[in-house]
């Protein structure tokens, strides 16, 4: 049987065939898939991991974890130190737990700030359109033309290497991205009837934006926020490697401090790096899940 091209096994061709045959629509495959109740196993794993991370961030410093033990220095996994130690004898697991709080706090703070600023900018641009929109978009585009990482580096360097400066730098980088998404979504929604209805009822602009458009835009923003947190965590690591990151122990600084020792003892780097990987993976996956649930039109990526 001619079961090779163009028979796409996800049913899309079959559906088109049948449509042509009987002129009646059938459910597209992804609609069928979405009716599956609850979350999959992977989603639960992701949530589980993130819960662990959150826990580490909150109660980490108070946990009774192995302390510095000089005899362990530069060793890989051994008894009592399941993930090895760094060159001074600090247990890698302890370090990574300790480093969780600054990293996560940074990520959450940055995303919160960027969502507020970018959200407002995007809503305003998408709602009012016209010249406001053009002006805002142009500013956005110019900011995006400059190399983002370099921008952040420069800001931190110039203003001093403190937690809040790093946060500021990352907010400045993240806001245009979130603003863009919000604007795109606002544009779509502001055309819809319920917005027009609200306006004809005499609602003022602010009210329309907050009451009508915002609730519809939030799911998309939320999924992007999840992805953005992942990006900020990665960025924190990157900035640290480049010596413009946080100063307190964080996932990033662990990598930065220990990468010189990579040859002799890779564990102090591999541990935080792997933790970052899992966390980012979890956020990405959940971001995807949220997007699929709420976004009717699936984008290519």
């Amino acid at each position: 049987m001619a079961d090779e091209i163009p028979t796409v096994a996800d049913g899309a061709v079959e559906e088109r065939f049948v449509e042509t045959v009987e002129g009646l629509p059938t459910d597209p495959e992804h609609v069928k898939a979405r009716r599956r109740r609850g979350l999959g196993l992977t989603a639960w794993l992701a949530l589980g991991w993130l819960a662990v991370v959150a826990l580490m961030a909150i109660i980490g410093p108070y946990l009774p974890l192995p302390e510095r033990d000089v005899s362990c220095a530069r060793e890989g996994p051994a008894a009592g130190h399941p993930l090895g130690c760094d060159q001074r004898g600090n247990d890698n697991l302890t370090l990574v737990v300790e480093g969780t709080r600054p990293t996560i706090t940074l990520a959450v703070a940055v995303i919160a700030g960027a969502m507020i600023l970018g959200g407002i900018a995007g809503l305003v641009a998408g709602y009012f359109r016209g010249r406001t929109d053009t002006a805002l978009t142009n500013v956005l585009n110019i900011m995006l033309a400059l190399p983002q990482l370099v921008l952040a580096m420069a800001i931190v360097r110039f203003m001093g290497q403190t937690f809040w400066n790093v946060a500021l730098a990352l907010v400045i980088v993240a806001t245009p991205l979130l603003g863009r998404i919000t604007r795109a979504n606002t544009l779509t929604f502001s055309e819809r009837e319920f917005v027009l209805a609200a306006k004809t009822l005499g609602a003022k602009h602010g009210r329309v934006m907050v009451r009508e458009i915002l609730p519809n835009v939030l799911p998309a923003m939320f999924s992007i926020a999840l992805l953005a947190i992942a990006i900020v965590i990665v960025a924190e690591g990157g900035l640290a490697i480049l010596n413009v990151g946080l100063t307190e122990t964080s996932w990033g600084t662990l990598i930065a401090e220990n990468r010189g020792q990579l040859r002799r003892n890779p564990w102090p780097v591999i541990v935080p790096v792997t933790v970052i990987f899992f966390t980012v993976l979890a956020f990405n996956y959940l971001g995807d899940v949220v997007r699929e649930r709420f976004d009717v039109r699936e984008s290519a990526l």
Partner: peptide, 23 residues
Amino acid sequence: ESGSGKSVLSRTIMGLLPSTATR
């Protein structure tokens, strides 16, 4: 008319059906 099966018939004879079809 459309839906009478005439197109599907021609493709069945030629063997141009998707793998989800049974014949």
